[in-house]
């Protein structure tokens, strides 16, 4: 097995063969999840704590289900409304949890780098479920799995990522992953929603959506946060939809068999037309949700294997 990492903090630290290893294992979990008895014992006896400093129903549910199907004891901590409000620091919260001997810590936090900071302070495996505008590795991996299953490969594809790139950790992780797997990435956004220095990332940058979609195999739409819609970054919701909302006319510029993706939750009529989102021939948005559970199972399984190997080696007195 080529996946050796202690934590999964970002795509940045993964090598292409590690990404492939995760996707291959995730494929097996997709099969498991489609059976009537969806149970494995990969995490039996292990404790998984989901620590979400930012509210998220979908991602938390996906991680919870993934852990339970692997046989872990799963605990959800809604940190958004607990001790953090009482002034406890991130590190103190981490140390408190660490004392309960969890094996896997799934963390989402609003500040970039917060999960890295936390990972330095605990003994268990840490899985980044999204930190600020930095990374959201399992999202990029589930997107990769979705693409690989729909297109038969995850290299030499033209992928257009469109929307609020500047504030999106999903875009960042996808950009890095798709680059590592040798795809052609295009970023499409109004210039106010494009991060600085992005042209140096080895991708093409467009502010004209039709040009950006030309010949794309995959169209990945990003969610536009409500608070960014009015006046601050873009003039209005309707102007945004007019210029950057994905509808049939704009999608016609992509390849005829291009697939449409969205990390959810969608704003229908803001970044994506409802009919496109529901078009079973183009949209793989529901598949993404399904792949999410499988990819998270694969990631946690691999991290648990490394954790066991490390503990076993330490018990045997071997330096690791």
């Amino acid at each position: 097995m080529s996946f050796r990492a202690r934590h999964l903090l970002g795509i940045q630290h993964l090598a292409p063969d590690e990404i492939r290893a995760i996707l291959d294992l995730a494929d097996k979990y997709v099969d498991l999840n489609r059976r009537s008895i969806k149970k494995s014992d990969a995490l039996a006896g292990m404790t998984q704590i989901n620590m979400f400093f930012e509210n998220s129903t979908r991602t938390q549910a996906s991680f919870e289900l993934a852990g339970k199907r692997l046989g872990a004891d799963v605990m959800n901590m809604s940190v958004a409304q607990s001790s953090v409000k009482k002034g406890e620091t991130l590190i103190d919260t981490a140390l408190t949890l660490n004392a309960m001997h969890p094996d896997l810590l799934v963390v989402r936090h609003g500040a970039s780098g917060a999960v890295n900071l936390l990972a330095e302070k605990v003994n268990c495996a840490v899985l980044n479920a999204g930190d600020g505008r930095h990374e959201h590795p399992t999202q990029a991996l589930l997107d990769a799995l979705t693409i690989r299953r729909a297109k038969g490969r995850i290299q030499r594809l033209t992928v257009a990522i469109c929307g609020d790139v500047a504030h999106s950790r999903v875009a960042r992780s996808n950009l890095i992953l798709l680059g590592k797997m040798e795809n052609r990435v295009r970023l499409i956004a109004p210039p106010t929603l494009m991060p600085a220095g992005v042209a140096e990332f080895g991708c093409e940058v467009f502010d004209d959506m039709r040009k950006g979609l030309e010949g794309a195999d995959v169209v990945m739409m990003l969610r536009l946060q409500k608070e960014r819609m009015d006046g601050g970054f873009i003039p209005s919701e309707r102007e945004y939809y007019h210029r950057y909302g994905l509808d049939a006319e704009k999608l016609a510029h992509a390849k005829p068999d291009a697939i449409v993706m969205h990390p959810g939750p969608m704003n229908r009529g803001v970044e994506i037309d409802g009919e496109i989102a529901d078009d079973i021939n183009r949209s793989v948005i529901q598949e993404q949700v399904e792949m999410g559970v499988a990819v998270r199972m694969a990631c946690m399984d691999l991290l648990a294997r490394n954790l066991r190997a490390e503990r076993g080696a330490r018990a045997a007195g071997v330096m690791v």
């Binding site: 970039s112 780098g113 930190d131 505008r133 930095h134 960042r172 600085a196 220095g197 992005v198 990332f201």
Partner: peptide, 15 residues
């Protein structure tokens, strides 16, 4: 400082 590095880290930058 804004730029490629700030964008990679996902940190708010200033020009």
């Amino acid at each position: 400082t804004s730029g490629k590095f700030a964008s990679l880290l996902g940190l708010p930058g200033v020009h």
